[in-house]
Design a binder for these strands. Structure first.
Length: 918
RNA sequence: GGGCGCGUAGCUCAGCGGUAGAGCACUACCUUGACAUGGUAGGGGUCACUGGUUCGAUCCCAGUCGUGCCCACCA
């Protein structure tokens, strides 16, 4: 093996092997509880980001772990057609060539999107392979595959037949740039500074006026009334009167409605049913006319006075305010912050707009979905997310599922010349169901479905639904959904609703909600901020210049480029080193805490790259020590052998708990700690004397333990770091005579039983060695200089421990010899370390700097005295002694005794030193 | 306006009723035959604040301050 670990060599060679040998396809005949995870299908809009890589790592850990436990395990991959997002990407590409989708026409455009999908989907798959994701590629799915599309149609028709889908004309969220309706979830409210214009509406009959406050003066042209609160005495006499609508020749009534808040503005509200959701409802209650004054582009239409027709809404706003002012109708303008609805894709201001759209009546679907979480058939992890879920589900509104796009599942509805609608699986079906002959001309609805409609079916359509396939029967409901909280409403809730209705059960048992990856400053990563990290760059490394180029090209706002460049050069002056996939994955695991934001900085990943190197070198040591030896099953083990096996058992038990609880951070920490602090720092060191000085049997036991523990550790690490563990395992397994082609298909290790005797013994060894080392360090004794150690006091167990491990201590601690001395022996020329009541005296004739040693001991004494006082205080308090559990009191008594002994020893030694100093 | 979080070592975060932990950073010493991507030994925290419950609170409860996110129709 090479002296240091180089990830690039290792990672390139394993993935293809695993995949081609079919390791990732589930073994449906395996015994054990089936385990399955649906990959949240990434959008085919480009490439994977850090969030995907993070999520994929968690899913892969779970998948590999359960596969090793012998369960039939499926991680189902695929991609999402992502309607709007993908259409926009392709339109933007066409725009570079000065072509619009309308130039191409629908069919040619859809072909162009398919071409893009092939390319983009390939990129995503390549990236997932680089991450080591052990998905079942042989069954990868795309939301617009034939089978999945058929399922979508089937679900649509079924919901329609049950009266849960209907087409209605009402206000929707209209995106005037994308020219499509969007759902409530796709609208983001953004706080923005605007104005509140106070406008006079003159009374029609006599003089006088009311003042209306509005943030949207341009919609005045569509006003149908002015409303006041029925209890508002200021305006009671005006209700029923007519007002002259400014800038028009219309008159509108004053109406009374509870909706109006007397405290806000002037207490008079203009009612514009065609352009405001609230006003729409007021209009319905009062039977007001609906006057739409906007075009689909949000320009003023023919219902507006001619002077404004064709003007964009914001231009019209300016003009109308100016005209009102000129007419003396503008009372005043005050600054006002308001929540502006913006499209999450286009970022343009969304208009409430009157159109025909398809809706899912959601309440009947939501009810069982709420039940499923309430009664525990689905469990959110962490649990508090169910509150978020309930809040939303209980106030859920009908879902607008039609989109005026070309890319997506075409709505299976046809119209005849009279506009009557016929729904069916296809045109022939619609015709038959509608009892229509061939002579009736039908035209299919132009719209497509919201992309989340098909995503909602993902957990069962990917398994073959509606066919009762073996995969469906085996893997549905899936075991866990791993996702971010940002799509609980978009996706999680809808999968639950659809799964319950169409697949007859919940889609998943657990929903593990993880945090979102942020940059090192806690900022959301985004192209426009220029703070995006590409997971592949962390694996392979990237030089500064290409990184700068990557971050500054293709920006929506090119003017940001210099700022981004500066920040990038500042943060990564030397670019990004190649850390390797295993280090990246281990870092993701260690970051998977319960928090919501996850800051990703380079410090952690560097530490984990070093961790890989540590593991690599530990393996190198083990192989060097075992090469050329025949390793046999040992008949007896040394105490360190027994200790490390016992510790491995503890590790494995902890790991199982942590993985079951989705605490990958704790799992990673446990692995790190065992590997570095127990196996490498202690066991490998303790093995050296045994290999050099031990007899044949001890040597064999030690070699066997070195190999066995390493081999099992590799298996435990494998779900987290698949590549390096495979590489090392290939060398370690033969040394143990293990058969098997790959670590991927090994079994999860059985945890060895706890060995209390060995644990106690090694704890004692460590205490002795650390005492000696501390003296060396603090008194500046060369690490290699052999020391004599005298032992004073102590207990029977101390003597027994020493007897069993004297030569081991000599070897590891560079100790020339041990000698028991009686209590009266002169210790004034010695440095002292204490292991409970056992005194380690290290004679350093002439080397002990009395002042220095006194200072050192005084420091220890101070701490001991403080602890002693605390123990005394506690035990002196009768309420503590009477009330605390017996075990706690007993433990405190032990501490008291131990501290008291230590304090006495230290005081005595200080006295001796003082006498020497005089 | 509701809901959900967070405030622990210089930084990023675990812990959550019995004497404060990790990684990184920091200090000193060490080219010891696995590893300087390393070793050994250290330094560093009144666990935001104020009350309460308790024998005992970083942990539970109430409130305050700071901070973040989500939802909501106030023109």
């Amino acid at each position: 093996m090479d002296k240091s670990y180089s990830p690039a060599d290792i990672e390139s060679r394993w993935y293809d092997t695993w995949e081609s040998r079919g390791y990732f396809a589930p073994d449906l005949d395996a015994e054990g509880e089936p385990y399955s995870i649906m990959l949240p299908p990434p959008n085919v809009t480009g490439s994977l980001h850090m969030g995907h890589a993070f999520q994929d790592t968690i899913m892969d850990i779970l998948t590999r772990y359960h596969r090793m436990r012998g369960q039939p395990t499926l991680w189902q991959p695929g991609t999402d057609h992502a309607g709007i997002a993908t259409q926009m990407v392709v339109e933007r590409q066409l725009a570079l060539k000065d072509v619009s989708r309308h130039d191409l026409g629908r069919d040619a455009f859809v072909d162009a999107v398919w071409a893009w999908k092939e390319q983009s989907g390939g990129t995503i798959e390549r990236q997932m392979r680089r991450l080591g994701a052990s998905v079942d590629w042989s069954h990868s799915r795309f939301t617009m595959d034939q089978g999945l599309s058929d399922a979508v149609t089937r679900v649509f028709v079924s919901l329609y037949d049950d009266g849960l889908i209907e087409r209605r004309k009402r206000l929707v969220n209209w995106d005037p740039v994308l020219h499509t309706a969007v759902s409530d979830l796709e609208v983001e409210s953004v706080e923005e500074k605007g104005s509140l214009w106070h406008i006079r509406y003159p009374l029609a009959d006599n003089g006088g006026h009311v003042i209306v406050a509005t943030t949207r003066p341009e919609t005045l042209l569509g006003d149908a009334a002015v409303a006041v609160n029925p209890d508002d005495e200021r305006y009671a006499s005006l209700v029923g009167k007519k007002l002259k609508l400014p800038l028009t020749d219309r008159t509108i009534p004053v109406i009374a409605d509870d909706y109006v808040d007397t405290e806000f503005g002037t207490g008079c509200v203009k009612i514009t049913p065609a352009h405001d959701f609230n006003d729409w409802e007021v209009g319905e209650r009062h039977d007001l006319p609906v006057i739409n004054v906007l075009t689909p582009d949000a320009a003023m239409n023919e219902n507006a006075p001619e002077a404004y027709q064709g003007m964009d809404r914001f231009e019209a706003r300016k003009q109308i305010v100016a005209d009102l002012e000129a007419a003396g109708l503008l009372e005043r303008t005050e600054p006002h912050t308001l929540m502006v609805p913006r499209g999450d894709r286009s970022n343009t201001v969304i208009e409430p707009y009157l159109t025909d759209q398809w809706y899912v009546k959601i309440a009947p679907l939501a009810k069982p979905a709420i039940e499923a979480v309430r009664d525990g058939r689905i469990r959110f992890v962490p649990e508090n997310w169910n509150k978020t879920y309930f809040n939303w589900m209980e106030g859920i509104k009908d879902w607008c599922i039609s989109r005026q796009l070309w890319w997506g599942h075409r709505i299976p509805a046809w119209y005849d010349d009279e506009g009557r609608v016929y729904v069916g699986r296809d045109e022939a079906d619609a015709r038959q169901r509608g009892g229509l002959g061939d002579e009736v001309a039908l035209r299919q609805d132009d719209d497509v479905l919201d992309t989340w409609f098909s995503s909602a079916l993902w957990p069962f359509t990917t398994l073959g639904w509606p066919d009762k396939t073996r995969r469906l029967e085996t893997f549905y409901p899936t075991s866990v959904l791993v996702t971010g909280f940002d799509i609980i409403f978009f996706w999680v809730a809808r999968m639950i609703m659809m799964g319950l209705r169409f697949a007859g059960d919940v889609p998943f048992r657990d929903v593990y909600i993880h945090g979102l990856i942020m940059d090192a400053q806690g900022q959301k990563m985004s192209k426009s901020k220029g703070n995006v990290l590409d997971p592949i760059d962390l694996i392979d490394g990237i030089e500064l210049e290409p990184l700068v180029r990557k971050r500054t090209t293709g920006l929506m706002q090119p003017q940001m480029a210099p700022k981004i460049e500066k920040a990038t050069r500042n943060e990564f002056p030397d670019g990004i080193p190649a850390y390797g996939c295993d280090a990246l994955r281990f870092t993701f695991a260690s970051l998977a805490t319960t928090g919501r934001d996850i800051r990703f900085g380079l410090g952690r990943i560097e530490g984990h790259r070093n961790f890989c190197n540590k593991l690599w070198n530990a393996a190198r040591y083990v192989l060097m020590q075992t090469e050329g030896h025949t390793i046999e099953a040992p008949r007896s083990l040394t105490l360190p052998d027994r200790w490390i096996r016992s510790r491995l058992g503890a590790l494995l038990r902890d790991l199982e708990t942590h993985i079951d609880n989705y605490r990958m951070d704790l799992a990673a920490q446990a692995l790190y700690e065992f590997t570095w602090n127990e196996y490498c720092d202690w066991y490998l060191e303790l093995s050296k004397p045994a290999l050099q000085e031990g007899d044949e049997a001890q040597q064999n036991a030690t070699r066997h333990t070195l190999l066995t523990v390493l081999e099992q550790l590799l298996r435990a690490l494998h779900p987290f770091m698949p590549f390096i563990t495979e590489e090392i395992w290939q060398k370690v397994a033969p040394a143990l005579g293990l058969s098997g082609d790959s670590i991927v298909i090994t079994d999860w290790p059985q945890a060895p039983a706890a060995d209390k005797e060995a644990e106690e013994h090694v704890a004692w060894l460590k205490a002795v060695l650390q005492g000696v080392r501390r003296i060396r360090a603090e008194l500046n004794v060369a690490p290699g200089k052999p020391l004599d150690v005298q032992l004073q006091g102590g207990t029977e167990p101390d003597r027994a421990h020493l007897e069993r491990s004297e030569s081991l201590l000599r070897g590891v601690g560079r100790i020339a010899g041990f000698e028991w001395v009686d209590a009266e022996a002169d210790a004034s020329q010695c440095a002292v370390a204490l292991v409970d009541s056992l005194r380690l005296l290290i004679p350093l004739k002439g080397l002990v700097d009395v002042a220095e040693e006194s200072r050192r001991l005084r420091k220890l004494l101070d701490k001991e005295r403080k602890d002693l006082a605390r123990s005394e205080g506690k035990l002196g308090n009768s309420r503590f002694v009477d009330n605390a559990p017996e075990a706690v009191v007993a433990q405190e008594k032990e501490r008291l005794a131990s501290h008291r002994a230590t304090v006495e020893e230290l005081e005595a030694q200080l006295e001796r030193l003082a006498a020497l100093g005089d």
